[in-house]
Each structure stands twice: as C-alpha cells, then as structure tokens.
C-alpha cells in the first residue's frame, strides 16, 4: 500500500506545472524515504530531479517500493481539478496498475477522487556525479524568471558570467544585444530578496533560453532560486520546496563560439 497525503495540496499542482512543459512522461519512484522523480526532456539536453521527503507529507505510508509511470499531461489535467486549498492524497495498491488522487476541500464538504492508469516506462536514469561548483548564485526566483523572459527576446542563447563582483546575464541577436548585471546584495535584510554569490573561480557559460524559461515555471514553488555553475559542466537550477524537498533542473551548456 502506498499513500501520501498533503494538506498543502497546491504544492503538487505547482510541481506539475513546473515539469509538464519539459517532460511528457515520468516515473515517480516511491520508497519509505519519500517520492523521487528523475527524467530527461526528449532532446536529452535537460534533466529534472524532484525530491519530496516522506516527513514533509502529513501522512506517508509506503509498504513496498513502488515505481509509478505517469503521463504528465494526464496528471496535470487531474491536479487542475483540485482546489488551491484542497488536501491532496495519492494512493496505490502494491503492484497496482492505477493510482488514485483524492481531493478534499478544507471543510470536507467536497471529496473527489480520480483514478488514472499507470504506464510501464523504460526511461534512462542517469548517474549525476557529486560536483563541487565554482560559483553558486542565490537570487529571488521572480527576478531570475524576469531576466530569462527579457533576454530570450534577444536571442536563443544566454551567457551567464559570474565573477566576484556579481553576475551578468547577456543575450545577442538580430535586433541587438542585452546585458543585465546583478551585484551581490550589500546588506541582507530579507534573505529572500538578496542576491548572494559564492565564488571560488569565475565562470562563464552559455545556455539555451528556451530551457531556462521552462525551468522558471517552478517560480511559484520558492521565493529563491539557486544557480550552480562550474566550467564545462551542466548548470543546476534549484528551487527548494519549503519543508518537503526540492526540484532541480540540470542543463547542458552550449559550446561557445
């Protein structure tokens, strides 16, 4: 028996919004530590890694490890039927070929259940090596979303250059060029609003704007985002989900001209 109940059901709605444009299907691996999902987009350029810890759920039971392959468009359709304040419960029997989503309104007056067929997915699971990153940048997630949106008007690629002075985002295209520089916040009153840079070595890497824009669909999950970069390795864009886990996106760089 698998059962995971979340009073803050809107978290699951937001998680689906954050992955459904990048992935069409994925496997939710459940064990007694929680729910994990790792999947690459179709072009094998980016990867989503989601972790929801068991202790972040209001009720969590997983008697046997279970892997549930799901069509994410279908899951997103079902979760759209949940109210923002609903409690969401996912449950499945051992060896089941369906999963059931139960939505309960705050006053318990409306209870809905949606049963969905599971899929057998044979997806590639990549091993991600432990990496010490040369630069980590923490910044407001809404600011990062704004920068990605603004710069993608100028070109398909964005250069992210991190030095000890700050971080510069740049794009160049037919209409011209754009540069956005963010300095490290001098004094941190509200950590959520701060730009904080930890740098061992400066790093400059180029990434496809399209994927960065997909990642920013996770903005509503966290007020802050963390970018981790080292020369010639994939970028990590991490949104922490309060008290329950995180969603990390990895993006392979482009080779610079």
């Amino acid at each position: 028996m698998f059962e995971a109940r979340l009073l803050r059901g809107s978290i699951l709605k937001k998680v689906l919004e954050a992955i459904k444009d990048l992935l069409t299907q994925a496997t939710f691996d459940c064990d007694d530590s929680g729910i994990q999902l790792q999947a690459m987009d179709n072009s094998h350029v980016s990867l989503v890694s989601l972790q929801l810890r068991a202790d972040g759920f209001d009720k969590y039971r997983c008697d046997r490890n279970i892997s549930m392959g799901m069509n994410l468009n279908s899951v997103a359709k079902i979760l759209k039927c949940a109210g923002d304040k609903d409690t969401v419960t996912m449950k499945a029997q051992d060896n089941a070929d369906t999963v059931t989503f139960v939505f309960e309104s705050p006053n318990q007056e409306k209870v809905s259940d949606y049963e969905m067929k599971l899929m057998n997915l044979d997806l590639e699971h990549l091993g991600i090596p432990e990496t010490e990153y040369s630069c980590t940048i923490r910044m407001p997630s809404a600011e990062f979303a704004r920068i990605c949106r603004d710069l993608s008007q100028f070109g398909d690629s964005m250069v992210i250059a991190c030095t000890k002075e700050g971080v510069k985002f740049s794009a160049t295209g037919e209409i011209g060029s754009a540069n956005i520089k963010l300095a490290q916040t001098a004094s941190v009153d509200k950590e959520e609003e701060a730009v904080i840079i930890e740098m061992d070595e400066p790093v400059t890497l180029t990434f496809a704007c399209q994927y960065l824009n997909y990642f920013t669909k996770a903005t509503s999950l966290s007020p802050q985002v963390q970018l981790s970069m080292s020369a010639d390795v994939p970028l990590v864009v991490e949104y922490r989900i309060q008290d329950i886990g995180h969603i990390r996106y990895y993006l392979a760089p482009k080779i610079e001209d």
Binding site: M40, Y250, A252, E256
Partner: peptide, 14 residues
C-alpha cells in the same frame, strides 16, 4: 545543432 551539448556528455549512463 548550434553548439548545444547533451547531458550524456557529462552524466554517467546506467
């Protein structure tokens, strides 16, 4: 393809 690299260049295949 415009210099885009793939994750399999960096991550370990099973």
């Amino acid at each position: 393809n415009d210099g885009q690299r793939f994750l399999s260049d960096f991550f370990i295949q099973p």
